[in-house]
């Protein structure tokens, strides 16, 4: 407690960002430190788990220390520590979990393990201070493409998810193939702005009637076939056009299904989360489609779309307030479900 505010430290190390943040009353970000390893992994064309784990260890103390300093608080002032315990890379997760446990034990603070995906949804509470459940959540990231009904702070009901590649993963793969490199999402987004989104007719994959699931591997195959065919015909490949059309085929299906889910569950709001929620075309398209149906779309700003500690602090705060009690025998659960 400081100045009457309940202070939560959130720690996040599930993939390639080492992050920590202090959040007041579950909503107000006092500090948000993110140390990204992206430059290191770029040389390998993607995140290398063993290297990610090593770098997390080297950074974690400094990131926690800076989060406290930036917020102008000490570990003593904290009321709660929250940490991502899954899903994610096991070697990466365990650095955050080991650090959080050591800190909770050394400082006599309660510790709550947070589901990374709940964290992504909670990112919206940090900027939309009036937002309360219920709402429909759309989580799109390098590892996830999920539509989740959120009836309460600590209730998440998964309605659909990807059957193969996640949206961000599909972007990464295509970006690599057309030579844009890693990370694919932002690079595709940028290239697509220069391309003609009606130049190539990639088929949209909606799966069975009414399904809220996704599949992007067929689209990837379509794109690879297109590239081969063009090369064999000796035609130049317009990278920007490929990026624009691939992106359009991905985000149109996502936007349609998210709006469909909100309508079916009579939710007046769609809340976006995850790294791919920063995709400018997805933001635009879902805004248009939801607007036609009178549904509001809330989006966190890009800094809260990527992995961060603040969203973990917020989710930990609401879990703690709902009566979840801490345990110092927390383990990392790489395949944690919703």
């Amino acid at each position: 407690m400081k100045d009457g505010k309940f202070l939560t430290l959130g720690i996040e190390t599930s993939c390639d960002e080492t992050a920590a943040s202090v959040v007041a009353d579950g909503r107000f970000v006092m500090s948000n430190v993110i140390s990204s390893q992206i430059d290191i992994h770029t040389a390998y064309g993607g995140v290398v788990p063993e290297i990610a784990s090593r770098k997390h260890l080297e950074k974690i103390n400094e990131v926690i220390g800076k989060a406290l300093d930036d917020a102008g608080v000490t570990a003593e002032d904290l009321d709660l520590i929250g940490v991502t315990y899954g899903p994610g890379l096991v070697g990466a997760l365990l650095i955050g979990v080991a650090a959080a446990k050591a800190m909770a034990y050394a400082c006599d603070k309660p510790l709550i393990g947070v589901n990374h995906m709940h964290g992504h949804i909670a990112a919206n509470y940090l900027e939309h201070h009036e937002l309360e459940p219920p709402f429909m959540a759309l989580i799109v990231s390098g590892g996830h493409t999920e539509i989740v009904n959120v009836p309460g702070y600590n209730k998440c009901e998964k309605l659909g998810g990807t059957r193969d590649d996640a949206a961000g993963e599909a972007f990464d793969k295509i970006a690599r193939v057309i030579g844009l490199g890693y990370p694919g999402g932002p690079k595709i987004d940028r290239a697509a702005k220069e391309g003609d989104a009606s130049a190539i007719a990639f088929k949209r994959v909606y799966l069975e009637q009414g399904s809220l699931d996704f599949s992007f591997s067929g689209l990837k195959t379509q794109a690879l076939n297109y590239l081969n065919q063009e090369r064999q015909a000796g035609r130049d490949i317009n990278v920007n056009d490929v990026a624009a059309n691939f992106q359009e085929a991905v985000v149109e299906v996502i936007a349609d299904k998210a709006v469909d889910a909100a309508e079916r569950y009579r939710q007046k709001r769609i809340v976006m989360a995850g790294g791919v929620a920063s995709n400018s075309r997805l933001r635009e398209l879902i805004g248009e489609k939801a607007g036609e149906k009178g549904i509001d779309v809330l989006k966190p700003s890009p800094v809260f779309c990527t992995d961060n500690g603040a969203m973990i602090a917020s989710a930990a705060y609401y879990a703690y307030k709902s009566g979840e009690r801490p345990a110092l025998d927390l383990d990392a659960v790489p395949g944690l479900e919703f």
Binding site: I60, N61, A98, A99, A102, M103, A106
Partner: peptide, 15 residues
């Protein structure tokens, strides 16, 4: 190694 070293580093930092 990482579990032990991380635990030791953070305990030492906090204490």
């Amino acid at each position: 190694i990482r579990i032990g070293v991380t635990t030791a580093r953070v305990m030492a930092q906090m204490l």
